[in-house]
Design a protein around this nucleic acid. Structure first.
Lengths: 335, 335
DNA sequence: AGAAAAGCTGTAAACGCTTGCATCATCACC
DNA sequence: GGTGATGATGCAAGCGTTTACAGCTTTTCT
């Protein structure tokens, strides 16, 4: 970036009006005579004038920029959410600053602060945890925040998600109906709100209600973690498992097949979040299909309202999900 | 964003110095007495002062922001590249504005212009095509640009890639050595520089040199496109195929398996760009493994140099790739 | 026709920071 | 002890916009 070649002054001079008028034309203010508007527009086009968004941001205190906070965009769950966000942001002329927070608290603070210093008009937050320090930073700057595909125990910010508890319960029921008795749950960080508030309670209530034993496993992040985890499942004679992430589910499935087990015969697998992956692998994964794109889109739309100062009626939005029975549960052929 | 609560003036007043001095402290300028520096820092911390990056950007004409242009982040190829970019950007304190251009020329112009209006200090461009209008916009604003995982016939901008021609040739050779005679190539847009300049020539030269017939297929974008494409391959009795994207390769493989064919027995499949996907599916895909993360990282590092006004010696950088023989070519067990 | 209202345009003060230049105090050196 | 050089600080002019506010025209209405 260098000093700007053609500024609003140049346009004003050429069009023989004041810069205020040029500004009005640029911003579509209606208080401009049509003839003047046309003259200014001609000069703008002739000079290739483009308003400097930084100066606009400083003068207007609105940057038409939103922050997108996510742990990792190579995780398709977040990538697919982001796509919905991006499309709506584009529609409303917002640019997106991405900020990845690899679940390292130390850096999250800095990253968030840096984002807020850029004076973003709002933030979409996607992550399993919302640390206090981050909330404080949001509060300090009074920035509107919406959670996408994410829940937070505080219920302080609007969020767009699905009914995780109901979805998980439905998944367990499916496996139970298929005659599976040793059901397991594989989650990431157990302290994350989503697990703590929904998935674990759903699981514990389910096994309690059906007098089953409880088997909760913990996964880190990679395909290979899933693969390695299978040994434990086998040792514990698990015959049905709900896995949060489909990448992990794939790992478990591969390990099971490599161990000569039948899927779904010996082990049923359901993933609680389907991405592209779930339908690409063979056998295709039975999955809770969250409407990720829509969730992102709705979250972003919500944020535009908040940035616009509109009040919103319903804060915790739940979109419908679908339990898609594919080839890792009984009675279905490969999809 | 609202008007800022605590500005550099407030700090100056409290610390009994001029705002210039506060600015010097904030920017680590060494021309400040240690005692003064300490006093200012204390006030900064006490008041929670955070510099307004927009004002800094306007005054300094540097926004510490770079643009990231990509067709689609749910395409893991770009997502994995982005991760390398993101990490290095973070290291050098740059924020990233993402801009997706879904290969729609009409909107690309607007999107790029909007990005440039934000006064980004540089741009990383990832896409199969670099339209003239985009180049013109870059030129007009004199913004440094680096291509990541992307090539352009103009060879005007630095790029970080691999030796596609060599890689493809190696892939074809592998299949030929496995006794395959009817080799095919599946690409996206044939006009894209990468295909036009490297993949197609590599293929045509190879079939010519070995007196094979030429079979080039065209794919759109989804898994299902790959799946449906298989019918054509089968009709043409293809027994070995190199597929640009691994998602498409998966589709072809699934279709082949569903048709009762053996992979690799009846059909060998190699993908020219491996992402997570290639190693997750069964059988795992033999693939050209591009060092996507590193390519992104190197590209971003290059961009920091350009933004810093440094001249760079080598413009077209090629990183080493690896041909990983997995389960869709002969003589290897599933990985 | 005259007054009030409405429409259009310009003036100038922000917005919050950086930075060249000027100023003044310190210090070293002979 | 005078002379530069050096270091620390302040002053003030930008950076390119937006937006009250004021002022001038034109329109509308009686």
């Amino acid at each position: 970036m260098h000093k700007q070649d053609v500024t609003i002054y140049d346009v004003a001079r050429e069009a023989k009006v004041s810069m205020a008028t040029v500004s009005r034309v640029v911003n579509g203010n209606s208080n401009v005579r049509e003839e003047t508007r046309q003259r200014v527009m001609d000069v703008i086009n002739r000079l290739h004038y483009q308003p400097n968004a930084v100066a606009q941001g400083l003068a207007s205190t609105r940057t038409t920029t939103v922050g997108l906070v996510a742990p990792d965009l190579t995780n398709l769950y977040f990538a697919e959410l982001s796509k919905g966000i991006d499309d709506i942001a584009h529609l409303y002329k917002y640019n997106i600053i991405i900020t990845s927070i690899e679940n390292q608290l130390i850096n999250e603070s800095q990253a968030i602060q840096s984002l807020l210093n850029k004076q973003v008009d709002g933030v979409i937050y996607m992550s399993n945890e919302l640390p206090d320090s981050t909330v404080e930073a949001f509060e300090r700057t009074n920035t509107p925040v919406v959670l996408a595909g994410t829940v937070d125990s505080r219920q302080q910010y609007p969020s767009v998600a699905i009914d995780y508890k109901k979805a998980d319960t439905e998944a367990f029921n499916t496996m139970l109906n298929d005659g599976k008795k040793r059901l397991a749950l594989v989650v990431g960080n157990e302290d994350a709100s989503i697990n703590h508030d929904y998935r674990l309670p759903a699981y514990e209530e389910f096994v309690a209600a059906h007098q089953l034993s409880s088997h909760v496993y913990h996964e880190r992040r990679d395909y290979s973690d899933g693969y390695n985890l299978y040994a434990q499942l086998q040792r514990d004679q698990i015959d049905g498992v709900l896995v949060t992430r489909d990448l992990i589910a794939c790992g478990i499935m591969s390990a099971a097949l490599d161990a000569g087990q039948k899927v779904p015969g010996d082990l049923e697998i359901i993933t609680a979040s389907a991405t592209q992956l779930a339908s690409v692998v063979r056998p295709s994964l039975t999955a809770v299909k969250q409407p990720l794109y829509d969730m992102g889109a709705v979250a972003m739309r919500l944020l535009t309202k908040l940035m616009n100062g509109e009040k919103i009626e319903e804060k915790q939005i739940q979109l419908p999900y679908e339990l898609m029975k594919k080839a890792t549960t009984a009675n279905k052929s490969a999809g």
